[in-house]
Amino acid sequence: MPLEVRERQELAISDLLDRALNKGVVIWGEATISLAGVDLIYVGLKVLVGSVDAVHQMRFALRDDASTDAEELM
């Protein structure tokens, strides 16, 4: 059995969410969050960010909607 390598399209959504929602550069502007009309708006996906629980929750949501997602993302 060879070493398992998962590239690109095979990447797990849980790994992606862990990275794209929790890591990477953030620049906070002088007036960071407002409803409109500020120099910089940062949307933190507050209902989804951060925890394993949240990622877990999404994983199951995605599994349920997997076929629809695949079509919409093409």
């Binding site: 398992e4 390598v5 998962r6 590239e7 990447l11 990275r19 990477g24 620049i27 002088e30």
Partner: peptide
Amino acid sequence: FDYEITGPWPPYSFADCQLGGSGRAA
């Protein structure tokens, strides 16, 4: 034991900085 490699990823895990509007780390 089983090993798994995933990627290549954009280097999210090594770009973990939050910067303030003033140019200083937030």
